[in-house]
């Protein structure tokens, strides 16, 4: 998409592992590999599509990269700096530069906070600008994501799903991140709203040069928006590469199965 940007590495994940204790009676408990020796890279300003079905570990991987949960082993290197073990100022500057967008626009905003305050939260906690600057910035961000600025004082319940997802994106953009990790950001939306949000993501990448990891179960969506694709299956990356290459010549049988399951827009003749 953005060929002008030189492909320097922004994020490098290497040999990442995360296991969980499975629930159930004690004699049946065992450790489940949510993320199994995963390595991937994201170049500056590019979009990596991360495809996988439920239980593939894609959300766990996203949260490990965000530094919200810590991996058992492996490295996350952001802009040349190892993220594991960061603390204080360095950690907060890393957090500023990597921001999440979540799936469910109903649970990703605090129901008691006016949406403008949610967007302002990172400006407040990272102490960016004066209070007046922050107010202005919130309005700019609303404009940026296509929201009417007079919604600033509304509570999330008074907004539609698409509007809430725009608020979520504005909140992620507030701290001027270089990488956005979007976990299923359109799967809870109606088709017509989904198209608008996908357009917004593409605009942001083009205008602001933000890199992103776009996590989705929907290969059709990922194909449309990504430069590279990584396919995650039971916590293992079974295939990575350029979108066209993966879509045309999938190497792993699971990728082929996923491709075959994409509903085509033309029904087969029966």
């Amino acid at each position: 998409m953005s060929d002008i940007v030189p492909a320097t590495t922004l994020l490098r994940v290497e040999g990442l592992n995360k296991t969980y204790q499975a629930g159930g009676p004690p004699w049946r408990r065992r450790r489940v590999h949510a993320v199994d020796n995963v390595s991937l890279t994201v170049a500056r300003g590019r979009t990596l599509g991360l495809v996988g079905e439920s239980g593939s570990g894609k959300s766990t991987l996203g949260r490990c990269i965000l530094g919200l949960i810590s991996p058992d082993s492996g490295q996350v290197v952001f802009d040349g700096v190892e993220v594991q073990g960061l603390s204080g100022k360095a950690l907060s500057s890393f957090r500023r530069r990597v921001q999440p967008v979540f799936q469910d626009p109903y649970s990703s905003l605090d129901p008691r906070w006016p949406v403008g305050r949610s967007v302002r939260e990172s400006l407040d906690s990272y102490r960016i600008g004066t209070p007046a600057d922050r107010e202005r910035r919130v309005l700019d961000l609303f404009d940026r994501v296509g929201l009417n600025p007079n919604l600033v004082n509304r509570l999330p319940t008074h907004l539609s799903g698409g509007q809430r997802q725009r608020v979520g994106i504005a909140a992620a953009l507030a701290s001027d991140p270089e990488l956005i990790i979007a976990d299923e950001p359109v799967s809870a939306l109606d088709l017509s709203v989904q198209a608008q949000i996908l357009n917004l993501f593409m605009d942001l990448q083009q205008d602001l040069g933000v890199a992103s990891i776009f996590i989705s179960h929907d290969l059709g969506v990922v194909e449309h928006i990504s430069d590279e694709i990584a396919v995650l299956y039971h916590g293992v990356v079974v295939e990575t590469g350029d979108v066209e290459q993966v879509m045309k010549r999938p190497v792993h049988p699971y990728t082929s199965r996923l491709l075959a399951a994409i509903p085509s827009s033309t029904p087969p003749r029966r």
Binding site: R95, R96, Q99, S108
Partner: peptide, 26 residues
Amino acid sequence: RNEYVLGARARGAGHLRVLVHHVAPN
């Protein structure tokens, strides 16, 4: 378990701030 709690942490809020401003009131 709500994503706004994770989101608040990513937006720079420390544990105490998340607890006082997001978790406790809800």
